[in-house]
Each structure stands twice: as structure tokens, then as C-alpha cells.
Design a binder for these strands. Structure first.
Lengths: 343, 343
DNA sequence: GTGAAAGCGCTAACAT
DNA sequence: ATGTTAGCGCTTTCAC
């Protein structure tokens, strides 16, 4: 069986507490005894048991991150900054992705309920599906920060929340388009539920009407392909151009989707019109170095991540359970790095 | 404080053991009492405590995956299959990436030593850096499977191991090049230590000499840029073409590196010669839908992942500690999806 | 079918 | 400086 501090205690003729002090190098202990104990621990092949520590201390020094997909550079980016913030305070980060599976998402959120981590940073698919679990976590005083889901009144005040200022981002974007003479935009959407989808489209349309002058905006409902996020975009491009032939702007949700769109045009050897502008609602290396110039919206991932962590950290270290917090990041419109030269 | 089974026991006038039986729905228990207890658990907001369970049961039903980077589609792919295999046996997967940081890598491997997971699937950077920790895990009978690091005699028989048959993959590749009249290949390498680097290059050169006829092969030592894997490739392409102007094949280590190379050529408006062939040692959507035709080596990630899990699973469920296991996957050479049309 | 009790590995308050 | 002791939350064997 595994070596425990008791084994070390016996071996060295000391007690558990002394061994614990030696191993953690805390409390009063003589150098000689500590050396002796550390040596014995090494010799016997002692392994600290995290379950024992966690049970005793009531914390794990781990923060869990729940994501819909790894391999999307946007999340990789976000994670990078989040981990940095965690590391600065001595927290490890465990990443869980649910691959857009509703059951897995719920299963993982349930797991968060068991105190195996001290806090959670979660990009949930939709509160429609997970709201009950989020609410439960909130009631149980598990520090959870949600990334970028639109608010729903049912669950207001039931979670901390970081997001970009979508409305403002779109307003800026639409005025930019208008100023540059664009007239026929298409924006992709994923329809999770009819209600939400309609609500979101109405809202976007409202912003569009206010900022884009005479232009028109159409929505294209994506058929999500769970096996690869790129595939979602693959089928979209041609259908969009067929449905709306006069399109001069396509607004994609993220780099991978856009990558798929561009790939599909290449694959079937379809020429991309020179005046067609691509816009991407995140800003990763995927767009930054694309072969086609892309206008991107930088979501300020570093700020999102930092604030997400801080909300969690504050809760971990706060005596009382504070009211729900919000952080809304500004966005930046990023112009393409090099000009359109696809002849 | 948190609600425990004891609280439920008091509430219902039962004992811990009965409550435990009810919650886990095991052992003999009357339907009526079970209902009663479950209702109370719900009402009181009971949360099972994973540390308590783990301590008692001696296992966590979690497998940890250690990776150098998320956001690389190769690892995302591998993870997808690995998770599927784990889920089939009821294991959760926690992902840890060390972002190519040596300290973080060691820190995480140390964490694996504390029994917080039942097994580890690890893509370590180099056994040169981590061999001591791997050896220690092995001695402590922690099921660890290493992904694709070349064997080093010091640590032989100290870990389970899955990898592709690199030699064979290269042999196939080189003959293909030779048959297609390629004469001047450049392969990128990352030099971790001088010794290993020399050893690897010698070995590759040996294979090349045997299979590639009159052609020449040069190595290009990458300057790794830790902030983004794509950036590693960015600086490489032009330097390669300057150092070896007659190059007609570039063999990149992975899709992201290659993406960086191609991006750098676009960014600085450099025309890629029509007869220049790109080869990528993995096969992800990044190459599959590249704007430039790419010859890829499919590493059979599904097989790697499946076998990696099975090795871990076998150890978890085996009474005695078996000798080190190996699995070497075949590779497939994948031709570009569409032909070279970058005019 | 249910309860009593031991114990998983560890830490920390308290006693010496 | 070191030892004693209680207990974190849970499961499981063994009585009854």
C-alpha cells in the first residue's frame, strides 16, 4: 500500500504532526529532525495524498475551467491569460471541455458541485440548458464566473459574469461597414432555441437599423457540425452566396468558422469576389494570418480572463457571499494586417 | 457550513450508513427510506464531497492529460478520442497544459504524484527534463502513458508508451519525394539539447540516405516562440529559402508551424514557387483545408488515444504491476485534397 | 433493512 | 520543539 505520514512517523520514531510539520516546512521544528524526516520520506517513497489534504483543509487550490471546445484558438487564448492570473495566486487550472455535448456539459457542472475545485470559470452553451445547475452552484456558494452568455431574467443575480459589450461592438462594426459603402451584410447565427434566437436577431437588427443607414442585414442559420468546428463553416459560404448573391460582407462568429468558409471556397474552386469583406467576431492567429484579409473584433481576452479570475478569487477569500458581479469588456475593431491581394 | 450526510441522517432520524446507501442506491435499503432520504438531501442542498469519497475509496474516477499546448488541433484531436475512450469506462478527463514551460510541466507532473487522478496520459517535452519524475511515478505505481517521445535507454521500462512509427513514416515520405523528383528537402527541428538533436538528425539522415536516392536533406533549427506556436513558423520560411534557395520540399513538424510559414510568405508578399512542396507531420483541419496544397502524415490519433487509455485502464484494474508496455501506430501519407492553384 | 464503528491521510489547535 | 487528539466527509464491514 501507499506510504503515509504515519509510516514515516514510525520509521523515524516521531509522530504524525511532526512529520506533517517537516513536510510542509511550517510550525516550529528543529532542522535536524526535519532533515531526518525528509530523508525518510524520500527513502520510503512517500506521496502526499491530495484527497487527505483537501478533506482536511477544505480547499484544493484548483480552479476548473469549463469550455465548449479546445482547439479553438479563442479559448486557447483566453485560457492562457486565465492560467496566468491563477498561477500568480498559486492556483492550478484543470480544463474540462464538453465538446458542445449537452449531457457532458451538465455532467461536468454537476461535478463542480462536489468541491473538487475551489472555483469555476465556465463558458456554458446556454443558460436555457444549464441555468438550473448554475443556480444550484450559486446557492451552494461555489464561486462560478460565467463567460459571455446573454443575460436571462430568470437567472439574474445568480452568477458572476464577464462578457464583451456585444451591442457596442456591433454598433461600431456596422457604422464602419456603412462608412465603407457596404450594403448587403450577412451574419451567421446558431439557433439553440427559437426564442433566444429570435430575441438575439431582433436586438442585432435594432442596432443595425440605427447604425448602418440604408444597408440590409440577413441572418444565416448555421447547421452546427459537432465533429469539427471548421466543418460548420464549410457548408455555409456557398449557401450564403447563393441565398444572397449581392452579399458584400459576411460576419462570422469566430475564426474557425471563417476558416471553414474560406476553405470551402478553395476546395470547390470558387472565386471570392474582390469586394466581399470578411468579418470575424474574434481575433486570433487564425484571422491575423489569414490568406484573405479579415476585419476582426478583438474581444480583449486578457481582460476577460483576468476579471473572471478576480471574481472567483474574491469569492474564495470573502467571508460573506457577495451579490452577483458583472464585468463588460470593451472591444476593438482590428483592421486586416495586409491588403486584399487575392486576384 | 456545507451539508453532509450526517446532517441528512439527523434530519431524517437515520444514520450515516443508511444515508450513504440511499444516496448511492446500493446495498439493502427500503424504498420508503430511500425516498425520504433523497428528498431531505435535495431539500437541505446536500453536496457530495469528492475529497471524502476519494479518501475513502482510494480512487477519483478521473484521468489527467498533460499536454504542451491546447489550441493545437493535433492535441485537440487526440484529446477528443482519448475522452471518448475514457467516457466509455466512466472516467472524467481533466486537461492540463504546460504551454511548453519546463517549470509548469514539472509542477504538474508532481501534482500527478498526489493521487488526485487515477492515471495520466502525458505528452512530455523531453525525458531529459522530466525523466526523474516519470521514473518516480512509475515506482509509485501511478499509471502513466507517455505519448510519442523517443526512447532513452536511461528510462527504458519506466513507462508505458504510445507513438507513431516515425522511422517508417519518414521512410515512406522520403521515397515518395524521391519518386516525385524532389531533390532538395529541408526539415525543421527544435533543438532541446545538443545531444538529442544530433542523435535524431543522424537517425533521420540515415533513413533519408537509404530511401531518397540522390537528393539532399538539410535541417533548419527553429527558434521556438512560446507566446504562439504559429509564430515559430513565421520567421522560418524566408530564412529557409534564403539559406537553401534551391529547396523544393519543406517538411514542417505540425500544422500550426506550417500555417505560420505560409502566413509569413503572404504577409511579406513573397511568392511561393510553384514547385515547392509542403509537408506536414500531422494531419488536422489546418492542413486539410489549407489554401496551399499540403502533403500530410496522418498519425492515427484515434489509435494512439485508444491504446493510451487502454494501457492506463489495464494498470488501474490490474492486481500486480505489469512490465512497461509499448504501442507503435502505423502512419498514412495523405495527399492534398485539391491541387496547387496558387498562381 | 438498519445501525455502530472503524478508518481512508492529513492538519491544526492544544497540551506538554 | 514535539506529542496528543480530534475531525474533515465518506464508505463499508460487521452486528443485529
Amino acid at each position: 500500500m501507499a506510504v503515509t505520514i504515519l509510516d514515516i512517523a514510525k520509521e523515524t520514531g516521531r509522530t504524525c504532526s511532526t512529520v506533517s510539520r517537516a513536510l510542509n516546512n511550517c510550525g516550529r521544528i528543529s532542522d535536524k529532525v526535519r532533515e531526518e524526516i525528509l530523508e525518510a520520506a524520500e527513502r520510503l517513497g512517500y506521496r502526499p495524498n491530495s484527497a487527505g489534504v483537501a478533506l482536511q483543509k477544505g480547499r484544493t487550490n484548483t480552479i476548473a475551467v469549463l469550455l465548449p471546445e479546445l482547439g479553438n484558438p479563442f479559448y486557447a487564448d483566453l485560457l492562457h491569460y486565465f492560467k496566468r492570473a491563477c498561477a500568480a495566486q498559486g492556483y492550478d487550472v484543470a480544463v474540462y471541455d464538453y465538446e458542445y455535448s449537452r449531457e457532458l456539459e451538465r455532467h461536468l457542472l454537476q461535478k463542480m458541485y462536489t468541491g473538487f475545485c475551489d472555483g469555476v470559470f465556465a463558458a456554458v452553451s446556454s443558460l436555457e440548458y444549464t441555468g438550473d445547475l448554475i443556480k444550484r452552484l450559486w446557492k451552494a456558494h461555489v464561486p462560478v464566473t460565467i463567460l459571455g452568455t446573454s443575460q436571462q431574467s430568470d437567472f439574474l443575480q445568480c452568477y458572476d459574469y464577464v462578457s464583451v459589450d456585444h451591442c457596442n461592438a456591433l454598433a461600431k462594426l456596422f457604422s464602419y461597414l456603412s462608412e465603407h459603402g457596404k450594403r448587403h451584410a450577412v451574419k451567421t447565427e446558431i439557433c439553440i432555441t427559437k426564442d433566444i434566437s429570435e430575441y438575439v436577431k431582433d436586438k442585432i437588427m435594432g442596432i443595425f437599423k440605427e447604425t448602418a443607414g440604408q444597408a440590409t442585414l440577413n441572418f444565416y442559420d448555421l447547421k452546427p457540425d459537432n465533429s469539427s468546428p471548421v466543418l460548420t463553416g464549410i457548408s455555409a459560404f456557398q449557401k450564403i452566396m447563393k441565398l444572397y448573391p449581392e452579399t458584400d460582407v459576411i460576419i462570422a462568429r469566430n475564426g474557425m468558422e471563417l476558416y471553414g468558409m474560406l476553405a470551402s471556397s478553395r476546395e470547390r474552386d470558387i472565386r471570392i469576389p474582390d469586394d466581399l469583406m470578411f468579418i470575424c467576431c474574434d481575433n486570433t492567429w487564425l484571422n491575423q494570418y489569414s490568406s484573405i484579409p479579415i476585419l476582426a473584433i478583438d474581444q480583449h481576452t486578457e481582460e476577460l480572463a483576468k476579471n473572471g479570475f478576480e471574481m472567483i478569487y474574491r469569492r474564495i477569500n470573502s467571508e460573506k457571499w457577495l451579490p452577483a458581479d458583472r464585468f463588460i469588456a470593451e472591444t476593438t475593431t482590428v483592421l486586416p494586417k495586409f491588403s486584399n491581394n487575392n486576384k
